[in-house]
Structure formats: structure tokens, C-alpha cells
Design a protein around this nucleic acid. Sequence first.
DNA 1: AATCCATTTCGATACTTATCGAATTAAATT
DNA 2: AATTTAATTCGATAAGTATCGAAATGGATT
Lengths: 183, 183
Amino acid sequence: MNQILDFAKALADANRLKIVGLLVQQPYSVEELAALLNLKASTVSHHLSKLSQVGLVNAKTESYYNVYQLDEKALENKSKSLFSQENLSASVADIDADAYDNKVLKDYVKKDGSLKTIPAQQKKLEAILRYIVKSFKVGKRYTEKQVNEILSKYHEDTASLRRELIGFKLMKREGGGGEYWRE
Amino acid sequence: MNQILDFAKALADANRLKIVGLLVQQPYSVEELAALLNLKASTVSHHLSKLSQVGLVNAKTESYYNVYQLDEKALENKSKSLFSQENLSASVADIDADAYDNKVLKDYVKKDGSLKTIPAQQKKLEAILRYIVKSFKVGKRYTEKQVNEILSKYHEDTASLRRELIGFKLMKREGGGGEYWRE
DNA sequence: AATCCATTTCGATACTTATCGAATTAAATT
DNA sequence: AATTTAATTCGATAAGTATCGAAATGGATT
């Protein structure tokens, strides 16, 4: 599931690093690796299984032996691309939305409930909007004037708030008539 | 000491990856990270300590808070260079080159120095022969009778041992005369 | 078919480490 | 100086995993 985590875990063991280091030079069988590392074959098998799961090594059967070799391209590709900032940002995807919202609210909402400023960052803005939209009853129709009146409790720039609520699809607007509602 | 291992270990934890992912976007204090990750501050502090040890993050004190930020260059440099084949080969530095031979000897040589059996596998046989050949002085000439006498200490099948020593080029034989020597 | 051998799988144990709560430290506001 | 607040350190516990030995698996050789 989480590629970065699995890759890092695969290399986060001294003996697995040694195995990779040995396989850089030439392929080895499980038995040979065990002898070289002073480990039992079953332990080495376990390590090779982890390395294989992330695609760093693969085995080819040769008569009795199971000869493992390093996938050099996989090593190079993954190590150079996996830890990019983009990929790391993806690790954040499943962060508790409520916890994040609470924190943002704490940062941006004054004691009286109004906003210090309107956040520039999308994620933060969205959290703020989820908070604001609760002031509107689900299903009820509002005129633009009514919408502005409610939004003015939060920030003087009601036009921006109104636009963002629509943009993030937290509220809907009917084409010409200027009616707003929350679904 | 082992840079690669420490770096991989630092990133081999889901919550530390999330921390890095969050810090990609902006700096955070320990308290904020704890709120976002649903962890206690002491735990986050522990994680930040590990990330800091490998130079991925650094803190600057701001009034009450200790604000951590990502060292983006360190992240990029280390992730792209650390897992190169050269560096990984270095992990092998402390492996005993004779470990494999030692393992084979342990398996096949009895306490009195003689062989349990003569290994059938080439690699093992070669390791055994490298051990046996040390009984012959370099350069000295031996008759076949003398060779057999020495080999009989290891195994009754002296003919096989003699043949294999020649086959693996650990000893030489002069065409007709039946003289053997080690170069 | 029967046997042999390396490898894998499984169950148990030991070691590492993530996590928490409490106590301590450090810094800034009162 | 006293107090407040965030951060770190410490001790204990729980969770994860490396390691081993024994048993099972799967090919290959006889």
C-alpha cells in the first residue's frame, strides 16, 4: 500500500543492507549469503522475502539453488524518485481530517468566532469553509444578500468567502436567480 | 556511523513519513504535529529527534514554540545519492571473506582434521581442497606415494582427492614422472 | 518411484523501538 | 522572582520484528 514506507523498511536493517551490498557484486544463493553473514538460512530467506516484496531482488532457480540477484534498475529508480517531496506529501493523505480542521480553526478563528484572515493555502481554506458552512441550514434557500449577512460575521471580504464556498462545492448556486443553498 | 542504515531507519516509520510530508508544506511546532497525528508531544519529540539526527529537519525557537522545518536539500541529496551501488557495497566491508570456506570446513571436517565425506558440490569441494592443500609445502616435489600418505589423513579415497586437486589446479603434476607440487 | 538438498514456512523467543505519562528543563511573560 | 507553557528526558509498557530450530515444500538427481 505505502510504497515509500515499505521501501524504507526494507533497507532499514543492517543485514539486509549487507545482502544488497553483496548482490551488487554478484548473485548469491540463500545458503551462501547465510554463511557470509553468519546467519541461518531461514533468517536470510526472511530478509530476501522482504527485499523481494519491494522489487529490489529476484530469484532464479538453478538446479538445487535459488540464486538471488539485485534488480539494479529498481534500486536506482526507487531510491532516486521515491523520496521526492511530492511522494512524501502523499503520506499525509490519510491524516485525521477533524484533527487538522481543529488545528486550523484554532489558528484562524478568534474568540468571537470571526476570522483573523482568510487562509491562502487550499487545505486550510477548506477547513475554514467547512466550519463556516455550518451556519447555513441544509436545504434552505438564501438570497445573496442573506448569504453576505451571514458571512460578514466571519470576514469583511464576503465576496471571496462566497466564491470559495461555491468553488469547493460546499454550497450550490442556481444559475441566474442568485439563490444559494447547502445540500 | 552507518549513514545509510540510519537514514533508512529514520524514514522507516509511518508517522515519521507523515511528519516529513507535513513539513514539506510548511514548518510546524511539536504541539501542532502532535495534534495533527493524534500523538502525544513526547512521542513526536522522539520522532523529530530521529529525523534531526540524520539531518532531515532542524528546529528554530520562536517565542514559546520550537518550530521544526524540513531541510529540503538534505532530503534530496541523501535520497538520491545514499543508496548508490557504491555506498551499498561499503556495507559489506566488514564481512569475512573466508566466511564461506569456514562454514564448509565446519560442516565437513571432524575434530581430528579428517573429512566426514568428500563434498559433491563444486563450491564446497573447492573450499575443502583449499584447506587440504595447505598440508603441502609450496614448491616442494612429492612422489605419488608421499601425496597419498598425506591425503590419507583426510580421507581414504586418496585417488579422488588427488585428482580433484589437479582438476582445480591447486596442485600440478609432471606428465610422466608422477611428481606433484604446489606452486 | 525414491531420495536428497536447498529453500521456505511456521512457531517460539529475544531484542528493538514506538508510545505514553510523569518528571524535568528551558524560555518567556507576569 | 514567580509563573506559565512548550519541549525534552526518563521509565515503563506494548507492539513490531529479527532470529532461530523444526517441520514442510518443491525440484532435481539417482
